[in-house]
Design a protein around this nucleic acid. Structure first.
Lengths: 208, 208
DNA sequence: TAGATTGTTAATCGATTAACAATC
DNA sequence: TAGATTGTTAATCGATTAACAATC
């Protein structure tokens, strides 16, 4: 699947291809050329062909790309052909927002449990009865359950404190919403969403 | 302030510099060399010097950079030396999470109002008494108030529908959490946070 | 002054775009 | 077949890193 080395830039673009292909699929469009997709996505056709070709010949000369096939293949590359078990650390508003977002579950990201320092405070907030455990039970929980991804929806300091517990507990990936970088060993990946940095980039753009 | 052209890559890094400098400031550290900062941030010293030099000589040979001064200057470049009026469209969990995040207000991002198709549903959810208006009042509201930034915490379809109302209403920037691209004229900027794409990037990394 | 460290140029690396032969 | 469009190489562009003279 990953014959040639895939650059970070391409990986960042893949989910957007996936989104547009999903839309085309919904519209009942069967095939698409790099030129037409280029017009819709506002990227060059050349880049589309370069990107897609990294994964092997999905296209066909004179025809273009089969939407359904390409959608499925990109889904596979992104790892969306399997499911993931998640826990959410932090049952505040952000943790609730993530837990209650239906779209993630649809894609195979299943939230198994939530954790909070103060689980009583958030009685009944979670979605579909996901239980909120006390944070002190985290280590034991990870000992008893196989968890692929932990979502950190807590402040920076506790996020740094909890990270080693997650790593020791066998978590493979951390989706980090805390305003801090995290140190993890090579076998664990971190994907950060720094909301305040995104907002600063917006304010920069407004002023320039 | 912006003598030389500033690349997108540098802008994306600025908030991270700002965060680290803020930490140094909290730790009472007065000066920092590009070498020491490089060690802490895991980037090359060369890149730090290149980046910071775009904005004019903040450093001093043989000394390094004055933390407080550099922090302030980067804040100015990011537009954090002024305040912004915001509205949040969508009073669901995500809209609530954003509205109730105290850090934004501290940085001068002031949430003036929230809007929802169904404002009664979310009675009393907002932070510090920010009022939730019916979405049907949006146009009139924007006529009567100067709003810098609109936050879109709603699904893709309504986000596309509402965008022209925001643009006509004089909004300067849109912080977009909807899973869609938005079309806006040149005088309006869009900063998107595509959470589902971020999660897909994480799943890609876990599998490769 | 001597040492440290920046500012800045040059070299390298990587990513994007252009072009066109291959081929469906 | 002729036309369309990919796959892929080469050219360009941009971003990062290395190196070192300038200078505090």
């Amino acid at each position: 699947m990953d014959n040639k080395a895939i650059s970070k830039a391409v990986i960042n673009r893949l989910p957007r291809y996936y989104r547009y292909l999903g839309q085309l699929l919904d519209q009942g469009i069967e095939r698409i050329s790099s030129g037409e997709l280029s017009r819709r996505m506002n990227v060059t056709a050349s880049q589309i062909r370069q990107d897609l070709n990294l994964f092997g010949g999905f296209g066909q000369q004179g025809y273009g790309y089969n939407v359904a096939h390409l959608y499925e293949e990109i889904g596979k590359i992104l790892g969306l052909d399997r499911s993931y078990s998640l826990i959410v650390i932090g049952a505040g508003k952000l943790g609730q927002a993530i837990s209650s977002y239906f779209g993630f579950e649809k894609r195979g990201f299943k939230i198994e449990a939530m954790f909070d320092r103060d689980p009583d405070k958030y009685g009944g907030v979670s979605y579909r009865g996901t239980r909120i455990h006390p944070l002190s039970d985290l280590q034991e929980y990870l000992h008893d359950h196989v968890i692929d991804i932990a979502v950190l929806a807590i402040p920076a300091d506790p996020a740094r404190t909890i990270t080693p517990i997650l790593v020791d507990g066998g978590v493979r990936g951390i989706w980090n919403f805390a305003h801090t970088d995290l140190e993890v060993p090579d076998n664990v990946v971190v994907q950060s969403v720094h909301l305040s940095e995104s907002l600063m980039q917006l304010s920069y753009k407004i002023n320039h």
